[in-house]
Design a protein around this nucleic acid. Structure first.
Lengths: 126, 126
DNA sequence: CAAATAAATGAATAATTGTTCATATGTTCA
DNA sequence: TGAACATATGAACAATTATTCATTTATTTG
């Protein structure tokens, strides 16, 4: 992941397109922003986490409810909930022994919907 | 990745929340849809690909332009462009020796923006 | 046709990651 | 207090993946 600075030799066509490249470079967001964006989507890029988020969008649930719903071990679910929590996508509250998780972001459903739109369009095309 | 069917033992709290779990289960989208959704976000979950998509949203570009812009080898860029093409996020056209890539989806920017909104809100909170 | 250029591809490698297993922590209640 | 339950956590392992390097394919042009 460490971005070593290695000079890439330009090919001839770059000289021709130099203006475009320079223009795009200026318009690009900060390196850090793009990195954070990728990190966020990485969290969405696992079907277990997608399922958990989708479930929590329907209802607040405890860890073992989720584990049963998804037919997964409590441990696996717990690990993934930690990832989701670190990404500030879910929050939790403790009620005695039980810890309830719920969504902590209003955009989750909107991000899902944008993705779904893409997927459904592709299916139509086939 | 192969989802072995292993029976997960229900804990006591599941019995209590049985109705909720059953209700959520019914409302969940198809397994395949959630899987496809995760696969799509996985493509967005890499900063190199995010950068490429962002660049292509600004302008159509050839492979070596992108390589120069991102300071990466032609090969690395080419490999990632293949991933993006397989996900139907970019398309290409050949003009002689040069292959130009461009976005093949109107939702890319919208998906970016949803993600950005989340990130920027988090930054404000700190 | 041969040389040169742009891009694609396959194998190899290093790094990351999701799950499992064993165990620890925190809470309730008899 | 101790047993039982719900959850969290750390180590280990298998699987996936991003990049590099070497090579191939496709195209132009001298």
């Amino acid at each position: 992941m460490a971005n070593k600075v290695q000079p890439i030799e330009r090919c001839d066509c770059d000289v021709i397109h130099e203006d475009i490249v320079k223009q795009v470079k200026n318009k690009m967001p900060q390196e850090e922003t793009l990195y954070d964006l990728a990190e966020l989507f990485k969290v969405f890029g696992d079907s277990t986490r997608i399922k958990i988020l989708w479930a929590l969008d329907e209802a607040e649930m405890c860890v073992c409810d989720i584990a049963f719903l998804l037919n997964m071990t409590q441990s696996a679910v717990s690990h993934q909930l930690r990832v989701l929590k670190q990404a500030d996508l879910v929050k939790n509250r403790r009620a005695g022994k039980i810890v309830f998780y719920s969504l902590d972001d209003e955009h989750v459903k909107q991000i899902f919907n944008q993705g779904l739109t893409h997927i459904l369009e592709l299916r139509e095309d086939q």
